[in-house]
Nucleic acid binder design. Structure first.
Lengths: 142, 142
DNA sequence: ATGCTATATTTAGCCAGCTAAATATAAGTC
DNA sequence: GACTTATATTTAGCTGGCTAAATATAGCAT
């Protein structure tokens, strides 16, 4: 019984994340972005000029993934890359004006997505849910 | 405040699913499987000989995705494909012995994954969580 | 029988994500 | 200075996932 419930939870999280990704992907296309690129830009809105390795750390992904994402974002005019003046190995990533202009529209998409996800779930439940999700996050990273 | 909490939830689900995928992917490599292939096989363990279109429905993905997954699984010897006798358009997918043998090991991986995910989360909380996740699923599909 | 439409699958090409290996530069060591 | 190791990024090649377009077959209607 417990096993069944637990297994449902694992699968449920799986279904939610893939459906959310699909949905969200479609929504982001209106901004000429692909899923994941919003997270990279989000980090840059907090302060740009960081290296690709630093982006790896923040986005928790591998260097080749950053290379590709950054290439795509650069081609679409949202960021620029400059070689570090003191370390010719590193590339520093900067937002363009177009990249900066996406901050508000992306935040709106986030709110819309979150509202859709949490519709009809009560504030008390949201708080508890939040706590449990944090626990799950730390379970995975530990 | 509410916005912040909600947004945390959206991001939290995002982080959990990507970390889970990474973890799980690594774990499945021991069985010579890639993430997602276990879901396809799982449907076949319930009964094989179904068409690729039926798999699309169960896995909620598009036909080309099935074409690729099925090709990979066939090359690795877990399934075989036969053209439908009455409808030459359709391919029917069957498990090989190797494919059948993966059922128990994959279920073990599921249990390990779920145990890691839900560690230290109480049974009452799990029940509530399950209910909320179901609600989120229906929010997304509706 | 001819033709139009619907269905099943594949191909090509894109993105996120990965690993393994190559490249380039930095920095420490002898 | 020359050698070795560490770090940053890229390339090649794989998977899951997608869309758009191409095939192939089925089935209906005239």
């Amino acid at each position: 019984m417990t096993d069944t419930v637990d297994c449902d939870i694992r699968q449920s999280v799986d279904r939610i994340s893939s459906q959310m990704r699909r949905d969200y992907s479609e929504s982001l296309r209106e901004l000429n972005l692909y899923v994941g690129q919003d997270n990279l830009l989000s980090r840059l809105w907090q302060g740009d000029g960081i290296t690709q390795m630093q982006l790896c750390g923040h986005l928790k992904c591998e260097p080749p993934t950053i290379t590709n994402m950054v290439k795509s974002l650069e081609q679409n005019g949202f960021i620029t890359r400059k070689r570090d003046e003191h370390d010719a190995r590193a590339m520093r990533i900067f937002l363009t004006d177009e990249g900066r202009e996406l901050e508000k529209p992306v935040e709106l998409k986030w709110k819309q997505q979150q509202e859709k996800l949490l519709h009809s779930i009560l504030p008390e439940e949201r708080l508890l849910l939040r706590r449990i999700l944090k626990q799950m996050e730390s379970n995975l990273s530990g």
